[in-house]
Design a protein around this nucleic acid. Structure first.
Length: 230
DNA sequence: ACCCAGGTGGCCC
DNA sequence: GGGCCACATGGG
């Protein structure tokens, strides 16, 4: 079923290519992905892009320089991403951690296995499960499945169950799918695309690429609550 | 004038 | 251990 949903989504929306890190050696690019993962918390991606452009412009895709700049200045630079005061601290926390534990060497940090990466990322204030997993998948390119609010809603709706917890749902996806970072990357992005574009107002939508499954859900379980949107 | 966006941490009970 | 709440900007 999960593989079928993926195929439907992929043929409908096409490849999303979120955060394609082209060069394995480009550490700066990976660091930019880490920063993006933090900046996009509860924020529209367009606004994050502007903030990242500002960081680049100010030569701040760099752990040491993030640590050195004042919170105030940093907050101003990333202003467009919203929550700028909080996020300035979060970026710094991440950089402090890298600096203290891995001498600022992101590649060294990424040499750890997934479990250790996740544990250490979660220990940083400002990084929760979704951000940690985004960093592991999109920057470190290790096969972990990122869960978000859309994924929860879509899954609970198709299978007519109450929304599952983060770790629980993640385990389900990871058991049913091939352990392929590229697949996990696209799948998560496609679910977000579905959530953003389709079935926002009505429980049913003819253009929805998982329409049959929605139909199944609605017909058999009589869910009419429009608040339960995908 | 609303409502939402690729969440997280803190506090309350 | 679940349920609120603050956090803040830009786009539709």
């Amino acid at each position: 079923m999960l593989n079928l949903i993926y195929r439907n989504l992929y043929s409908h929306f096409g490849p999303q290519n979120w955060w394609p890190v082209t060069s394995e050696k480009d550490t700066k690019q990976k660091l930019e992905v880490c920063f993006g993962a933090i900046l996009t918390q509860n924020t529209n991606w367009k606004n994050v892009e502007k903030a990242i452009a500002q960081l680049n412009k100010n030569n701040l895709i760099n752990t040491k320089r993030i640590i050195d700049i004042s919170n105030k200045k940093l907050a101003l630079i990333i202003r467009s991403s919203g929550y700028h005061n909080q996020k300035a601290k979060k970026l710094k926390n991440f950089c402090y951690f890298l600096s203290k534990t891995y001498n600022g060497n992101l590649n060294l940090f990424f040499k750890n296995n997934m479990e250790k990466l996740r544990t250490e990322l979660l220990s940083i204030n400002g990084i929760g499960p979704e951000t940690a997993d985004s960093i592991i998948l999109y920057a470190a390119k290790k096969p972990i499945f990122v869960i978000d609010a859309y994924t929860r809603r879509i899954y609970s709706r198709i299978f007519n169950i109450k929304p599952l917890g983060y770790d629980e749902l993640q385990q389900i996806f990871m058991k049913k799918l091939n352990n392929d970072p590229k697949l996990f990357n696209e799948y998560h992005a496609l679910l977000v695309e579905l959530g953003k574009n389709i079935c926002k107002k009505k429980p049913l939508c003819n253009q929805c690429p998982i329409n049959n499954m929605c139909n199944y859900y609605n017909k058999n379980h009589k869910i009419k609550n429009s608040k339960n949107k995908i």
